[in-house]
């Protein structure tokens, strides 16, 4: 199952949480009561999931979540249930929010949802980035093409073919070729 890191400044709760997680088959790879320490542990241990209390010495859970939520699914476990904190957590990219006191059976769905949401979000982000890249490439190629049409008096098809020929001959991606043309003619 998942490798989990716990950060909570209540030691008894931490002990309990660890035992609960282990009961349902997860591994607690690290635990701490200090926000700063948690931050350094996360980079060392690279857990699958991070569970954070909000009120902690060193760094509070929401601050910490802001730093890591794009790389790790973060679940907040806290006694605070103020609206503004929940909003802050959402804005920080937190995947689940559990309020204390909680029952052990809330943990599993929260973890599953958090992980799947995180994966979904990650893949969407990746897709968006890919599309962005494609769009960018397309723009560059169009620009290079229009430069060729304008300056070398070629038709659109001729210009595109020329770029393709260069790409094949030089064994370079079309985007690099386009960039070189813009650098030269632009």
């Amino acid at each position: 199952m998942y490798r989990i890191l716990i950060a909570d400044d209540e030691p008894l709760i931490r002990v309990d949480l660890r035992e609960m997680l282990e009961d349902i088959g997860h591994t607690v790879v690290g635990e701490t009561g200090d926000g700063k320490e948690a931050y350094s542990l996360i980079d060392q241990l690279k857990p699958d999931i991070v569970m954070l209390d909000i009120k902690m010495p060193g760094m509070n859970g929401i601050e910490l979540a802001k730093k890591i939520a794009h790389r790790y699914p973060v679940i907040i476990v806290t006694a605070f249930c103020e609206k503004h904190l929940i909003q802050q957590a959402r804005d920080a990219g937190v995947m689940a929010y559990i309020t204390k006191p909680f029952l052990d059976r809330v943990l599993s769905p929260a973890i599953e949802l958090a992980v799947s949401h995180f994966l979904e979000k990650s893949s969407l982000t990746e897709k968006v980035n890919h599309l962005k890249e494609q769009l960018e490439t397309r723009k560059i190629i169009d620009r290079a093409k229009s430069l060729l049409i304008e300056q070398e008096k070629l038709t659109e098809a001729q210009a595109y073919r020329k770029m393709q020929t260069i790409s094949m001959n030089k064994n370079k991606p079309l985007k690099d070729v386009a960039e070189a043309i813009i650098l030269m003619l632009g």
């Binding site: 008894l12 309990d16 204390k100 006191p101 909680f102």
Partner: peptide, 20 residues
């Protein structure tokens, strides 16, 4: 309020630890 909830969590944790 916060402490009460925390303590309730503590109590729950203690009980769970005891159950185990």
């Amino acid at each position: 309020h916060h402490r009460v909830k925390n303590n309730l969590q503590n109590i729950a944790s203690l009980l769970r630890m005891q159950i185990r």
